[in-house]
């Protein structure tokens, strides 16, 4: 069993951290995992993406030409990754920042206004967790409990007070994804 996905957006949207959290969760579950970031010369801003592979087997390539799933947090990332997701794959879209529809009809598409949901939950920094919750609803590699526990283990002490909000964001994202019917093409 191998799951691979790309998470992409602007620097600062928690793209790299969301991927790291998945990789940590995979290790905690005794699975193999690789986390591979895009990296550029910029110190802040710019675009960021990471590829996460999770498998019960040792992992060869940490990069994938056509990921099985993608979470896109901004329009440039949708433009880049929409054509690349494997047919029948999963595409999760941050509808707060992306006002165009997904053109492909052979994907399971979940569009969530994740920035707005995060704001409702009290912090714009929860966007990545809302989208991660949606991913886990569709790809239950781990339970939300497992991911929340992993988060507790990896979060520095000074951020521990944010755990309940992060947990709520994961749950809200999962609920919103569950409300979207799986596209017929993928069913």
């Amino acid at each position: 069993m191998t799951t691979d996905l790309v998470i992409a957006g602007f620097g600062g949207q928690g793209v790299l951290f969301a991927g790291q959290l998945l990789a940590h969760a995979a290790l905690e579950a005794d699975l193999h995992t690789t986390w591979y970031p895009s990296y550029g010369p910029e110190m802040r801003g710019g675009t960021a993406n990471c590829t996460v592979v999770i498998s019960d087997q040792p992992i060869g390539s940490p990069v994938v030409a056509r990921p099985e799933a993608a979470i896109v947090l901004n329009l440039p990332s949708l433009d880049r990754y929409e054509p690349l997701v494997r047919p029948g794959g999963l595409l999760i879209v941050n509808a707060s920042l992306i006002d165009r529809d997904v053109r492909r009809t052979d994907l399971d598409v979940i569009a969530i206004p994740a920035d707005d949901v995060a704001a409702e939950l009290g912090s714009p920094r929860l966007t990545n967790m809302v989208l991660l919750g949606a991913l886990l609803a569709r790809r239950p590699v781990f339970t939300l409990d497992h991911v929340a526990k992993t988060l507790e283990a990896v979060l520095p002490e000074r951020h521990r007070h944010l755990l309940p909000a992060n947990r709520a964001a994961l749950e809200r994202g999962a609920e919103l994804a569950d409300a979207v019917e799986v596209a017929a093409a993928t069913g």
């Binding site: 990789a23 290790l27 995992t33 690789t34 591979y36 970031p37 990296y39 940490p62 990069v63």
Partner: peptide, 10 residues
């Protein structure tokens, strides 16, 4: 190489 330097793995 840059991939081995930048990637994370268990």
């Amino acid at each position: 190489d840059g991939s081995l330097g930048q990637m994370m793995e268990g």
